[in-house]
Design a protein around this nucleic acid. Structure first.
Lengths: 183, 183
DNA sequence: TATTGTTATACTCTATAACTATA
DNA sequence: TATAGTTATAGAGTATAACAATA
């Protein structure tokens, strides 16, 4: 196969695979996450730190636990993230007057200021990504995406679509690569 | 704050945060990935293994390197994934006649059979997720998502939207939690 | 007893570097 | 010299479990 043929084949591959929903959402998500990562610079925790800050600025962060669940991170990880964000003087942990076990996450004054600039950058990333669509489509895409997110958040998320995990193919033990025992 | 007020606030939080694009795409992606993970059962590599298999079945996998880049994984990780998939008799590494350094990834007969069932399951996950939208919207959402993915794949992905990473907030050293030195 | 948050530890996953074989 | 793939290893990230304080 000549390199020209190879290139043509690769183009083809791209076109067809990108037509797969799972492939597509993965690709778009990774591209967005990567772009946001560079956009937020050295904010502790990267994109996740940014979203925590965003929630805090809007006064919607709530408790550590609820925020962690919303962001899809373990509650212990949330502790580390908040330690770093607090050390950077972006957010603050305040005692919850209603439940002395919990903390309420709020943005500091500095956090508010930083977020102004960060949000502008992240917005540009979002717009740049959506520029691939006609302006009108971009808006409805954004809207539908938010609808899906809201639906996932409230309803139970597709977990019931498939219940059991069947045994697939060669039951021969797969010895967990990359950590080939200590022997 | 009463617990009723707290509940109301939490509802509000959900609604507003889900209206943030980044938050929404993260939420939807995680929900989809989690659902696919359970749908594919113990296929080696989980969702990633499934997508490799899907590419192989369609004869679009190509070389390990190109496939790895497409899936957003390191080429060394691709080696491990393929080791496991090959051990499970789902895919096969064939020498590339055009370049004896490279391998071409193809699905085995067993891999083809398994994929038939797996694809049906994953399709159900996708449909279940998109059920939150009116049927017509679901189709256009899917289409737009694929357009975005194709655009990301070809054009350079938003990486130029923001160039430098500025220093944010307290430059006080953040001591990297969770690995508090060996002392 | 159950829950929030923290800490320590163990584990998994990823990526770096070094190596082989091709080009 | 550069690239595809492999392997080993170090490192980052994650989750488990135990604990303290509060409900």
């Amino acid at each position: 196969m000549t390199s020209q043929q190879a290139d043509a084949a690769n183009q083809e591959v791209g076109a067809v695979l990108d037509d797969d929903f799972g492939f597509a959402i993965g690709t778009v998500f990774r591209a967005y996450a990567k772009a946001v990562e560079s956009a937020v610079g050295d904010v502790p925790g990267g994109p996740r730190g940014y979203f925590i800050l965003a929630a805090a600025v809007r006064g919607e962060a709530g408790s550590q636990r609820s925020l962690a669940e919303r962001l899809g991170v373990d509650r212990t990880v949330m502790t580390y993230l908040l330690d770093d964000l607090e050390a950077a003087d972006l957010v603050e942990r305040r005692p919850d007057p209603a439940d002395r076990r919990g903390r309420i996450i709020v943005a500091t004054e500095n956090g508010n200021r930083c977020w102004q600039e960060l949000r502008a950058r992240v917005d540009r990333v979002e717009q740049h990504l959506l520029n691939a669509l006609p302006k009108k489509d971009a808006e409805s895409f954004r809207s539908m995406l938010c609808t899906l997110a809201a639906h996932v958040t409230t309803g139970n998320p597709a977990a019931d679509a498939c219940e059991a995990a069947t045994e697939w193919a060669a039951p021969a033990e797969r010895p967990r690569r990359g950590r080939r025992s200590t022997a």
